[in-house]
Each structure stands twice: as structure tokens, then as C-alpha cells.
Design a protein around this nucleic acid. Structure first.
Lengths: 298, 298
DNA sequence: GATTTATAGTTGCTAAAAGCAACTAACCAC
DNA sequence: GTGGTTAGTTGCTTTTAGCAACTATAAATC
């Protein structure tokens, strides 16, 4: 649909908001309140934390900085043992960046600082205004996040591609699982008859994944595993699209049940499952981390 | 009222919004798209434009930069004829900063650049989402703007204080009046029986002003003049407080009518007047700039 | 399979941005 | 007046960032 030209009032309203907001929240302060890191260093650490296994080039694009400068910056952060640069098996030129433990605690510390500042502002607000403010910002977030061009597509994974391994890696980090699959396991899984994996993509960027796994202990059933949507892509119904693909596939296989396990804490995930017709059931496996079990009749 | 401690979810929601928003809008890009100015220079120019007669120290606080650096920055902008530094009559140490004509056009040009970028984002949105986005951001703006601590107080002006002269100066710049009162005129005005001036203040900062002036041509009437609220303080009902004070004073003087003149373009001002019971009337003076005349029976 | 072309990252050099500290001049409180 | 304070300036230094030439790997072309 061809959008109508933006009304000038809209534009200046946003411009004014930007100026006001950055000033009020101190978003442009050079020395990031914390003596130890510059604003750019802090942003770099945060970006690596948010996107483990990011490459320097991707970082450069998202921070819009010079390659040379980034290179030195990363060298310095590595020297200070805040990040780790590991060789990529896919492309020997690039290095995959991850936070070290102390890098993670540095990010946590930076967040704390920024939180203190935000908290001081929120505390001057009456509770209902506070709710109102959060809701307004979240609405803005949602609208802008969804506005990114392109359609989310769901792709079946046939081979253990780097992209598939990378998103699984991210999933593991996000849920802190202890027992991780090895790359070879994915290959094995994909070749099992009733098992499969899907990726959600926007252009070429992977937004999330889900795995359907054979469940030999229960007749005519399979298990939904590794449902994960990257934080940056949430609110775009990516999980819904992934589950649609998974369930359709299961139906084609003439399965009767999808089982899954999860944790009581994951309220939004549980809400989604319930909304899709999953209902609580008894423990069906011995996953020690899981506290909640659900299933759906197809 | 003692505010309840902020819920951690609120804080992290705001932190995430900040990261997302600054990245999406490119607010942290160093070289401000325009080759001519750095981000800091652009911010400086904008700040001076938004607060004419600001001092270097105030600027330093709002941009949180070093005094020495600011000093050099201002020297450079002055050399480039973008700003003017005029001596303060109140405090000979400080210099009042204003944009030159070419400084103003530089700001306009910077705004255009930033607008292009904003416009590109808005154009990807459907009209209703666009409206929704603007409304959300404006709501956030409003809440945060009002959250600034302290109560707005209204003060009667007894002598032509520097603060009173400064806000009048700002008013003149804002409305582009040709015929300005000279400082002596304010003294004369304040000593007239039915005339007076009020300032709205937040802590020690002046937010706006209004003048009540004797109107000898009409019996038992006075005129409301110079109603002005600084852009940064709008949305806080400052004008309402000022008019309350003015009308109360007029009633105490046993006046029957308040008259005022304005321009058709000033829709929000006119809406405020109408809401307060002012109604349109015939031209009662010979102010060539005025196109709309109103009055209210007290 | 050799050759070109492109890409990821490094390094030398330089410029711009920003901070620190010592300074001057004006103001303020007693 | 005198001592303490504040607004702004200036000399000096560090940090931040960019440019361009370079190496090594990958991808494309023939």
C-alpha cells in the first residue's frame, strides 16, 4: 500500500520528542556515568551481549563506526578480558565475538547504572502515570519494530546450516540449558523420520526457531522443542508462525499429539500455548529443568 | 506522595526502549549526516535556537560537556558567524548566546536532514499506526515533562527585574513583534494603577509571563498582553495559571472586562481563550499585526 | 584450476572531540 | 574591603574516531 506523505507536524513532533527524550534520559552523555567505559564501549559490550557470536562487521553496521576503530576497540576489550574472539568455522576471515563472564558482569553493571537513573525518574511519577508512560513507550516500540520492511518467512531446515546452529546457540544461552546438543546431533535429528526444524527469517536475518522431535515413548505423538524468538523480534507473532508450521507438518504426518515441556516462569510462552489450545498434562519425560508439561490434540 | 519503588520490569522496559529507539532513529550517529556539523555542534546550535539568550554554563549543563570545550566550541561557532555572544547587563561575566540569521538557517537545515530520516521511517507505516505512534510519543513526552519536580508558582512582578526583561525578550523573538517595549517602558507600565505583570516559575526558572494593561479607551476594562509560555514548559497548564492570576487581580480591581488581541494562526491560544469564556469581539485597538480580538466579562 | 575481485579485519597515521587544571575577571556575602 | 564563588578562557593532554594502505581469506569468473 502506498503510504500517504507524512504530515509535517508528525515529523516535527518526533524530532522534538527525540531532543527532549535524549536530554531527559541523558542518552548522549559521553562518559557513561561509569568511569570505566565510554559510551561507545558500553554500546559495543551491550551489542555483543545481545547478539552473541556477532562479527565485527555486523557490529560496525549497527553502531555505524569505522572498521579500523572497531578493530582497535575490540582488541582493547579483548585485552581487558571483557570479550572473547573465536574463529569462525564457516569463514576464516571473521571472528565471532562473545562476552566473557566478566564482560557479562560489566554489562550487568552498566545496566544497573542506567537503571538507577531511570528509576530516579520513574519515582517522581505517580503509579498510574508510570504505567501510562511504560505503555506509551511500549506501543511506540511495537509500532516501530513492526514497521521494519519485509515479511517474516518460515523455512524448513534440511541440513545443519550455520544459521540453524547459531540460533540454537543463542537459545541455549538464553535458557541456560546445561546439556546442549552437539552440532552432529542436529544432523542426526534432522534425519529422523518425524523430526524437523524451522527457522523464522526476515530477509536473511534469523528471528527464531522451533524443533519438532520424534517422541517414541508415546504413540502418534511428537514433541515441540527449542521454540525461541530473538528478543529484538518479539511482538511480531514469530512464535505463532513457527508453531503454525510445526503443527501443520505434524498433521501431515498423521500425528495425534504435540507435547512440550516448559517452566512456570515463562508466562508469555505459556499464555501463547494455552491460547493455541495446549493444555497441561502429566510429566512425560525426565527433563529435570522442566516444571510444566503441556499437550495439544491435533 | 511517597512513590512506590519502581517495578524492575518497568525499568528494563525503558532501558530496552532506549536502546531500540536510539538505534532505530540513528540518534547516536557521530557525524550528523551533514558534513558541516558534528553531533555536538548541531546539538549546541539547536539548544541555542530553542533557548535564546542562554549562557554557556546553562548550555554546559544541558549538554553535559566540559566548560573548556564548550568555550572553544562557542568561539568556533562565533567565528563562523553562526551564533552571537552578547554581554549580559545583569552579570558581566556571562555572555548571552543567540543564533545569527545564518545560524538559524543552519538549524533549519539540520532539522530538514533529521526530518528526512524520520519521514522515511514514518512512510513505511500505515496512517493509523503513524497517528498511534505520534500519540504514544507525545503521551510519553507529556508525562516526562510534567514529572519534573516542583510546583509551578505564579509571581507578581513589582520591579523590571532581569528575569522579567529576559522573558519579554524571548516573547518578542517568538512572536516577531516589530515594536518592542524598551526596558524603561516596563518600569512605567508597572507603575500604572491597573497594570501588572506576572511570571510563572518552576524553582527559579521562568516558564512564562503575562501582562495586564490599563485600557483607557474602554471603561472598566483592561487588556491581557504578552501571554507567553516557553516551549519547553508547554503542556503544563502554565498559561491557565497565569490567566487565573491575571483575572483574579482584575476582579479585585472591580474591572468588568478583559480584552485581548491575537492572530488567527495561534489555534491553541485561541482554543484556550475560548475555553476560558473569552468571545470574539470587534477590533478595539490599532495593532496592525492583530487579526482577532476577544473579550471576557468577569 | 588459475586469476581476478570482493570482503573481514589489522595497522600506521592523522584529525577531531573532549577533558583537566590553572588562570582571569566579575560577582557576592560578610 | 576581603575572602570565597562563579563564568568563562587558555595551555596542554588524552580519547575517540576516521582514512588509507595492507594482509588474508573467500567468492566469482574465466
Amino acid at each position: 500500500m502506498p503510504a500517504a506523505p507524512s504530515h509535517p507536524d508528525h515529523i516535527s513532533a518526533i524530532r522534538e520528542f527525540n531532543r527532549f527524550y535524549t536530554a531527559r534520559l541523558g542518552l548522549l552523555r559521553k562518559r557513561h556515568l561509569d568511569g570505566e567505559f565510554s559510551l561507545t564501549e558500553a554500546r559495543t559490550l551491550y551489542e555483543i551481549g545481545a547478539h552473541p557470536r556477532i562479527t565485527a562487521t555486523e557490529l560496525r553496521q549497527s553502531l555505524s563506526l569505522d572498521r579500523g576503530y572497531i578493530s582497535r576497540l575490540l582488541a582493547s576489550l579483548t585485552r581487558r578480558k571483557l570479550i572473547r574472539q573465536s574463529a569462525s568455522t564457516i569463514d576464516a576471515r571473521e571472528k565471532l565475538l562473545t562476552l566473557t563472564t566478566s564482560g557479562e558482569s560489566a554489562v550487568a553493571h552498566l545496566n544497573q547504572n542506567s537503571d538507577r537513573h531511570i528509576s530516579a525518574i520513574l519515582e517522581t511519577l505517580q503509579p498510574h502515570l508510570r504505567e501510562d508512560l511504560i505503555a506509551s513507550l511500549q506501543r511506540a516500540y511495537q509500532i516501530l519494530n513492526n514497521s521494519q520492511t519485509g515479511e517474516v518467512s518460515i523455512q524448513r531446515v534440511n541440513v545443519p546450516s550455520p544459521a540453524a546452529l547459531a540460533i540454537l546457540e543463542e537459545y541455549y544461552e538464553a535458557v541456560h540449558v546445561i546439556k546442549r546438543d552437539k552440532p552432529g546431533d542436529l544432523q542426526a535429528l534432522l534425519s529422523e523420520p518425524a523430526s524437523a526444524m524451522w527457522l523464522a527469517k526476515l530477509d536473511e536475518k534469523v528471528l527464531g526457531c522451533v524443533v519438532l522431535r520424534n517422541l517414541p515413548s508415546i504413540p502418534n505423538a511428537a514433541e515441540c522443542k527449542r521454540l525461541y524468538v530473538r528478543p529484538a523480534a518479539r511482538g511480531r507473532h514469530v512464535a505463532t508462525l513457527l508453531l503454525d508450521a510445526l503443527e501443520e507438518h505434524a498433521r501431515n504426518l498423521k500425528l495425534d499429539w504435540i507435547y512440550l515441556d516448559t517452566y512456570d516462569d515463562l508466562k508469555p510462552a505459556i499464555a501463547l500455548y494455552e491460547q493455541r489450545g495446549y493444555e497441561r498434562c502429566d510429566r512425560y519425560n525426565d527433563n529435570p529443568q522442566a516444571t510444566l508439561f503441556m499437550r495439544k490434540r491435533l
